[in-house]
Design a binder for these strands. Structure first.
Length: 279
DNA sequence: ACACCCTCCTGGAGGC
DNA sequence: TGCCTCCAGGAGGGTG
């Protein structure tokens, strides 16, 4: 599933291709993919606008448009943004069709096409005047300079909740998902069921470093591909080779050799080492 | 405040 | 081989 590193990889790819492009044609095949406005208005109001800037906020792709609107994309579970260069061959099918999972096509004046593909149709696109309407509730960016161990400590202290579901909460910390929370907790030797407010300053510091390490390494590896994730060109990431616990049930912990266990925490499959992640 | 449930979806896995 | 049921999971909503 796309989390912060996967979205960051997609955004970096879009930055080099999309800025300056002008939308020529929009086609929505599955209207419910468009969160706002209604799909027909989305098609009309996106046309003619130019992409000024592409950034990331949490797991959202944020495209600033001129005249002033913002196009936001959330990939959720299986969403993909795919880029196709202009098709020069006369008579070639355009936009690329025959793929029932491609739900939105955006064709640019240059002839290039950006399409949104999503097997499970959980992903959402938003066309809004003010991106804060969608992004306003998001918590801290874990890779921002302002996110310090002290900030993390202050975020955790008020909560008696279990640490894992809390870290998945986007209004607390924006960008972590099921994979990287498990990886960060293993890296920091903290049990997923640990109550957030019981973390010591030293543990908060360890968790802070672990979150940053795990996310940065995944960005350097262009994301984790367990099943569906791919970049703009359809290429998988390499970070799956660096996972310590995810999908390693029964295999030896890289730190202590104990068998990795799987449990369900907050309804999510959770992988951890029962020996070196203390409750 | 927090745990738990449901909904949205569909491919893949497991049971028989 | 084939059919059927179950399941994962991000986020938002509701309930206890």
């Amino acid at each position: 599933m796309p989390e912060l590193p996967e979205v960051e990889t997609v955004v970096r790819g879009l930055q080099t291709r999309l800025v300056g492009e002008v939308v020529a044609e929009v086609c929505v095949r599955w209207p419910r993919i468009i969160a706002t406005p209604a799909a027909d208005r989305f098609e009309r109001e996106l046309c003619g606008r130019q992409i000024i800037q592409v950034t990331r906020r949490g797991k959202f792709v944020v495209m600033a448009l001129e005249p002033s609107k913002s196009l936001l994309v959330h990939l959720r579970m299986t969403g993909q943004l795919l880029w196709a260069e202009p098709i020069t061959t006369a008579g070639a099918p355009e936009p690329p069709d025959g793929d029932v999972h491609r739900h939105v096509f955006i064709r640019f004046a240059s002839g290039a096409t950006l399409s949104f593909r999503d097997q499970r149709k959980f992903g959402r696109l938003y066309l809004v005047d003010d991106p804060q309407d969608v992004l306003g509730g998001l918590g801290d960016e874990p890779l921002a300079a302002s996110f310090t161990p002290q900030v993390l400590g202050a975020l955790l202290r008020p909560h008696r909740r279990r640490i894992k579901p809390l870290l998945l909460e986007q209004r607390i910390l924006a960008g972590l998902g099921n994979i990287y929370v498990d990886e960060a907790l293993w890296e920091a030797s903290i049990h997923p069921l640990r109550q957030a407010h019981t973390l010591s300053d030293v543990e908060a510091e360890r968790l802070h470093a672990a979150i940053r390490l795990v996310l940065q390494r995944a960005i350097d590896n262009r994301g984790t591909t367990l099943r569906d994730y791919c970049d703009l060109q359809g290429q998988p990431g390499r970070n799956q080779e660096y996972l310590a616990v995810r999908n390693r049930e029964g295999e030896a912990c890289y730190r202590c050799g104990q068998a990795i266990e799987r449990a369900v925490v907050g309804g999510r499959g959770t992988y951890y080492c029962p020996r070196c992640q203390s409750v």
